[in-house]
Amino acid sequence: MNKTVVKIVMVAVLMFGFSFALVPLYNIFCEITGLNGKTSGQVAKEVLASQVVDENRNVTVQFDASVNSELNWEFRPLEFEMQVVPGKLYKTEFYAKNLSDNDITGRATYSVTPRKASLYFNKTECFCFTEQTLKAHEEVIMPVSFIIDSKLAKEVNLMTLSYTFYKFESK
């Protein structure tokens, strides 16, 4: 009987641990499938080396920027959309300004839609997940470089890169 009880208790403890293990598992799942707009983690050189550039193919990339309500910043892309050829390196810029009288640190998250395109979106330079401190009324231009993988499915001719800035609070 004690053996049975010990075994069952161990299952319960393991399942409690499993609930926390679901957090990294979910992230890995999203990275593999591109769920939630997670983009590919590949580096520029590797991507560029494997590209087959078709100059006749055009993809529209739209840029979207939003700010969480708790962050008193202005944040917008400097160009709203871009015609790009898959396989080539492009650069665009975002503009941010601290509208308040205090220094504030923000942090951006991003996603790419449609989901099946997100894995083919490679950012080589980006301000995502880095803490960005703007002094009172300071302005900044933030560059993003990217390559759309030429293996992107033929039917995709429009994709959106969306950024959201949140207030970063070190807790």
Binding site: V11, F16, S19, F20
Partner: peptide, 14 residues
Amino acid sequence: LIAVMPVFAGAVTM
């Protein structure tokens, strides 16, 4: 119950 109550406990702990 053994399999899922701990998962719920984990979720609310988070």
